[in-house]
Design a protein around this nucleic acid. Structure first.
Lengths: 187, 187
DNA sequence: GATTAATCTTACCACCTGGTTAAAAATTAG
DNA sequence: CTAATTTTTAACCAGGTGGTAAGATTAATC
């Protein structure tokens, strides 16, 4: 066992939180799923909230890396933005549990009420991800590929909030989503 | 007191659930907010889940009625769809707690694996609301005001998931959102 | 092989949870 | 005014919660 234990707990927590949400799952459940004793969880993570923080940061990172790694070599803007949407959709399809976690906990993370250092960091993490999309869109405006009346912040908001939500409605076609979004941002 | 007690509990629960989510709030908390004894809550609602169900159904109804009441007299399609967006935005602005509740619990309601009669009804309630938007959009396609390549289901998905989410980001301009959505659905 | 450090287990705790019960208070009906 | 009914109260319960303490086991260091 030894060193991979922490990772097993993280993975189990990711799945558990994605299925039942932070408040819907107990540390004992997570421990069972990871095949470890409950106290071991607290050995590796000071509290349930800290465990969640670790899961959140890792989940956003995975999404972020998956999307932006694939488009970084593309220099033709329109191709880049198309690749961006494709890889976003790809992530929703293949990493359903991570996407579900993000969708489920987004509200709790962004909800302004709690202002502890830990929750401010989680908020930051997510906002930073969105900002990268805003930057991508602004790049297109500078290149005159995206019309000026399409504001980047709001478009990024539309993209992030509507693509992820599709996992809760099996009838939604991601291809149609892609088509509509592309239609919206291009002339 | 007497008959209005039930309503006070409902209102308190609506606020409580919107702020902390179903699992994040206890029945005792709700009771305190409503100014009643905890047992009174169980006197009016058989269980916490039933209380939530009542809150959910009422919240969706309020949103639904607010939006569709205002547009039912409009016969010019483009005006109707513009009014629709305006009243949607109006609701987000003025009924923040209800919107927050819907945004927060949407995931839980839609992804509930347990197919109990109660949770199936909640899912149904929300899907029915979305369907009304789909119908509105399809009406526009029949009237040739909305292009065929803009699929109604996916557009409704975009609208419902992105407008509501704005409450968690104070920097998002609802007017810009409106502009973008209008741009998307019209030629 | 002994010492030290890292990891894991068992047992426990105080508190909170949704929910119940039986009786008291308030309201309504006769 | 009294009896029946509705509404509210306080006290309680069994099970679960996040979290802790102390010791046992394993692994690393000398």
């Amino acid at each position: 066992m030894a060193k991979e234990t922490r990772l097993r707990i993280l993975k189990a927590a990711q799945l558990a939180f994605s299925e039942k949400g932070f408040n819907g799952v107990s540390v004992e459940e997570i421990a069972e799923m990871a095949g470890v004793n409950k106290a071991v969880v607290f050995y590796y993570f000071p509290s349930k909230a800290d465990l969640f923080a670790a899961v959140w940061e890792q989940s956003i990172s995975e999404l972020e890396e998956h999307i932006f790694e694939e488009i970084k070599d593309e220099s033709v803007y329109l191709k880049k933005v198309k690749k961006f949407l494709k890889s976003y959709i790809d992530f929703v399809r293949n990493k359903r549990d991570i996407m579900k976690l993000i969708e489920r906990e987004k509200v709790g993370v962004l909800s302004e009420k709690n202002d502890s250092i830990i929750s401010r960091k989680l908020k930051e993490k997510y906002k930073n991800f969105v900002k990268k999309i805003v930057d991508l869109l602004n790049e297109g405006k500078e290149l005159r590929e995206i019309p000026n009346e399409v504001s980047a912040e709001e478009t990024a908001n539309i993209i992030t909030n509507s693509i992820g939500a599709t996992i809760f409605d099996p009838n939604i076609s991601l291809e149609n989503m892609e088509k509509i979004i592309l239609r919206t941002i291009t002339k």
